[in-house]
Amino acid sequence: MLEQTKAIVLHSIKYGDSSLITTCYTEKCGVKSYMLKGVLKSRKSKIKPAYFQPLTQLVLTVNHNNKGALNSIREVEIEQFYTSIHTDIKKQTIALFLAEILNYSIKEEELNSSLYQYLEASFLWLDTHSNISNFHLLFLLNLTKFLGFYPDLNTSDNNYFDLYEARFTTKQNHHTVSGDKIVQFKKLLGIHFDAIHTVNFNAESRQVVLSILIQYFELHLSGFRKPKSLQVLKSIFS
């Protein structure tokens, strides 16, 4: 049955000589993967490979088979035209990195309107702002709200943060963050993207916080692995 849904591209891979398999986070059905047969060689096709760059926001007319196999796309159009994400090298790198994070983090094939709205609004913010060096850090932290392990702030005055328990504590173990690391980590708590420019990170502290967040995701998400683009991201913002 054909249906229409908004979607955000997470991952695309070449299949054979002429086709693509793309994975998208859809507004109505969660994560879905699609086979785009012949899209790489057909000049007459209305479906263009350029539509499936990381984080592109689309409107899809699709056939969801709901049997675990690849789905098909009948029509596609751009929902939001980005002005800079796919042309600015820093934003391109962030987009590739966050698309990998999302591809490893979200597996559910079900409606989650609040998560979709968060992704949609966040990437539009990234596209329209220039002070974006800390964007990926705040994005990852806020993403944990929707994945179920945002830090418990009730005891945020404590000197240690237990990554496994997702809470601040007075006791240290092999999963806790302390010292200057926790000072840097706390700078992100409770702020919005419009205040990201007020967070004072140098290159070193930015890498420290990123490493904490990656470890945090690894502890809480089964099957999560470090994105291949992580080193590129670190070099761009070092």
Rank of each mutant, 00 (worst) to 15 (best):
L2G: 01
E3D: 05
Q4I: 15
K6E: 12
K6C: 02
K6G: 04
A7T: 03
I8K: 01
V9F: 06
V9C: 07
S12M: 02
I13A: 09
K14F: 00
Y15L: 14
G16M: 12
S19H: 11
L20A: 10
L20K: 07
T22E: 03
Y25T: 02
K28P: 00
C29D: 05
G30Q: 02
L36Y: 09
V39H: 07
L40W: 04
K41E: 11
K41N: 15
R43V: 07
K44D: 12
K48A: 11
P49F: 05
F52Y: 13
P54D: 07
T56M: 08
L60I: 12
V62Y: 08
N65A: 08
N65S: 13
N66F: 14
K67S: 13
K67L: 12
G68C: 07
L70D: 03
N71G: 08
N71W: 13
I73T: 06
I73Y: 05
I73Q: 01
V76M: 08
E77F: 10
I78G: 03
Q80M: 11
S84N: 13
D88A: 11
I89P: 06
K91T: 12
K91W: 13
K91M: 12
Q92T: 14
Q92D: 01
A95M: 07
A95W: 03
A99D: 03
E100S: 06
E100A: 03
I101P: 02
L102K: 02
N103A: 06
Y104D: 04
S105N: 09
I106H: 01
E109W: 05
E109M: 06
L111P: 00
L115Y: 12
L115S: 04
Y116A: 01
S122R: 14
W125E: 06
T128S: 15
I132K: 01
I132N: 01
F135Q: 01
L137D: 06
L137F: 10
L140K: 02
L140E: 04
L143D: 04
T144I: 09
F146N: 02
F149M: 07
D152R: 06
N154D: 11
N154S: 14
N154F: 02
D157H: 06
N158G: 02
F161W: 04
L163F: 00
L163W: 00
Y164E: 13
A166S: 15
R167S: 13
K171M: 08
N173G: 10
H174E: 11
H174M: 09
H175P: 00
S178N: 09
G179K: 13
D180M: 08
K181T: 03
V183M: 05
V183G: 00
Q184H: 15
K186M: 04
L188D: 04
L189V: 10
T198C: 08
T198H: 11
V199Q: 06
F201N: 05
N202D: 15
N202C: 07
E204Y: 12
E204C: 00
R206H: 13
V208H: 01
V208E: 04
L213M: 09
I214S: 04
F217K: 03
E218W: 00
E218N: 12
L219K: 11
L221F: 08
F224T: 05
P227G: 09
Q231W: 01
Q231S: 15
Q231D: 15
Q231L: 14
L233S: 07
S235W: 01
F237A: 03
F237L: 14
